[in-house]
Design a binder for these strands. Structure first.
Lengths: 235, 235
DNA sequence: ACCGTATGGATTGTTCAACGATCCATCAAG
DNA sequence: CTTGATGGATCGTTGAACAATCCATACGGT
């Protein structure tokens, strides 16, 4: 008879099949729209006509509406009854709340570094090097995404996939605010040194020092974003 | 000429109209299904046929699918491609993560009590009294919802509507796990005293003591839930 | 000019019917 | 016992249709 408990390679397959099982059409459409919005190719405030977008992407209205629901639930789009969906225009109050959330959650995640596996720290280190490399070659968009990866890896210290997904949405919403300013790409460059310092603090498990660097980063970033947002609003 | 900056009563109207502006049919259907699921009237694992449910609620399949997307995104339902939607069956690993999240976030929220307005503390007090009253009258379901309100009010200390919405979903998912056990209602009754103690700690702004009571509550609750869940799985 | 109303076009909200794709249970063959 | 084929049920997606709603415009009274 065969073994009754599943052999190791079976569970390995189960984990690998995740990305394989492609989503439905609505989810793939949602993926397309999400990257278009978070990359700033569709400006905040833009109205997404069901007919126009549906024709452009080659899907029916019903399917497109499912995708819209997805993205509206992620707060990237706002759904106004009988008026349609629009790319969200972030309000300064939203920015304030987003940073309050980051302070709360990324701060709590940093405090969990004691029980985190080395693999998690390595991931943070890799994102820092990724950013430094991109900056050395003046690839500013890549610097921005590396910064995203950096904070994503920090959240991962908490060890909760649900929290990761939640913070992914928070970070995506924040990118919307960046794009509402003029030049979103150079935004992240000044913080490369701070990320490196935060990394070394984490590597030595110096929770106190790590929290100091983190809140300093978040405070400065919030101040700069709010100021730029205010300037572009009153030109 | 009229004032160019909006008078106070205008913004008051804007806030009040929230509940008035009824949602779409899909959202109302989602509300119905959500309460049915979180109240345990539809058991975990149940398959929700588009045709059957659509006929029962009097909406078309397309509209129903929009509601399903909503609830699947809230993790109350699981959407399997070409198989349909099912009421989520919580796994013990999920329970572990849910409690890890509660420790992390409710703990961080408690730490914010210093900067919280008195109104926030009052809301917590009210939920405690609500639970004590319900328990005195043996209304156990109301005890459970009061406990929910209690923790909801704690999360509100953090001052982030997005975090509140997130934790609402976490708590809803947890109710699913409660319903997977036999008697979900008496679950919350033993913790009334602890809630009262946690409240007094918060009222005196004793952060340290509040955290102790909170983690004690969460640890015990998690242990009890996991044990009961394990027992019912192997009867 | 100012205000309320009516009118019409455009877009969304919702339903319905249809067809292909996929899953699942069943059964037959090896 | 495994493999492969068959058929039914359900989902995935589309296209069309109609009602409901919003918006801009024009009209008429003051």
């Amino acid at each position: 008879m065969t073994t009754h408990t599943a052999p190791g390679w079976v569970t390995a397959l189960e984990q690998a099949k995740g990305p394989l099982g492609r989503g439905s059409t609505a989810e793939r459409i949602a993926d397309v729209l999400r990257t278009q919005v978070t990359d700033g190719h569709i400006a905040p405030g833009t109205r997404l006509s069901e007919e126009t977008v549906g024709a452009a992407l080659g899907v029916s209205r019903n399917t497109l509406r499912e995708a819209f629901r997805l993205l509206a639930h992620e707060r990237l789009l706002v759904h106004e009854l009988n008026r349609g969906v629009f790319v969200r225009t972030p309000h300064p109050d939203d920015v304030t709340e987003l940073y309050r959330l980051r302070r709360l959650i990324e701060g709590a995640a940093v405090r969990e570094v004691a029980g985190a596996p080395d693999r998690a720290i390595d991931e943070i280190r890799r994102s820092v090097e990724e950013g430094e490399q991109a900056a050395a070659e003046q690839r500013w968009p890549d610097v921005a995404t590396a910064d995203l990866h950096f904070h994503r890896a920090i959240v991962r210290l908490a060890g909760s996939p649900r929290l990761e997904a939640f913070m992914d949405r928070i970070h995506a919403e924040l990118r919307l605010a960046f794009h509402a300013t003029g030049d979103p790409q150079r935004f992240h460059a000044p913080y490369l040194n701070r990320n490196r310092e935060l990394l070394t603090a984490l590597q030595t498990r110096d929770t106190r020092q790590a929290e100091i660097h983190l809140t300093a980063y978040l405070d400065d970033s919030e101040r700069q974003l709010l100021r730029t947002l205010h300037d572009t609003a009153h030109p």
